[in-house]
């Protein structure tokens, strides 16, 4: 399909979104990621039954924590699609990219650069 999506997104492959823990996402933000989004299979279609549902709950937990500490919960998002939906993958990437552009960089990154 050779679809285009923003180039500043780094993909981390996992066997199932159920593998993604709150801690993984928080560590990414701590290291300066501006946003983290998890792309799972459609709800009801998880090969392991509930991996993507767990992932959604974990993303929600991360959103809450980010809001509490003033980083902005919107920086974490959960998306679902089927493996045949390439265009949707590109659309979600663009959507996330735009959301982050609107929110600005992760303040932690700036603090880290100041400190260095």
């Amino acid at each position: 399909m050779r679809l285009k999506y923003p180039t500043d997104i780094r993909i981390v492959r996992v066997p199932c979104t159920g593998k993604v823990d709150v801690l993984h996402m928080l560590r990414a933000f701590e290291k300066g990621a501006d946003g983290v989004y998890v792309v799972g299979c459609l709800e009801g279609d998880c090969h392991y039954n509930s991996g993507n549902l767990r992932a959604r709950k974990r993303v929600e937990q991360v959103q809450k924590i980010l809001d509490t500490i003033g980083i902005g919960g919107e920086r974490a998002q959960m998306y679902n699609l089927s493996s045949g939906e390439g265009p949707l993958f590109a659309k979600y990437a663009t959507e996330m990219h735009e959301r982050i552009l609107e929110m600005g960089p992760n303040p932690i990154k700036a603090r880290r650069q100041q400190a260095a």
Binding site: E30, I65, G70, I71, I108, R111
Partner: peptide, 9 residues
């Protein structure tokens, strides 16, 4: 992690 980020922020 949350405490660290809060303090840094």
């Amino acid at each position: 992690s949350a405490l660290r980020m809060h303090a840094m922020n």
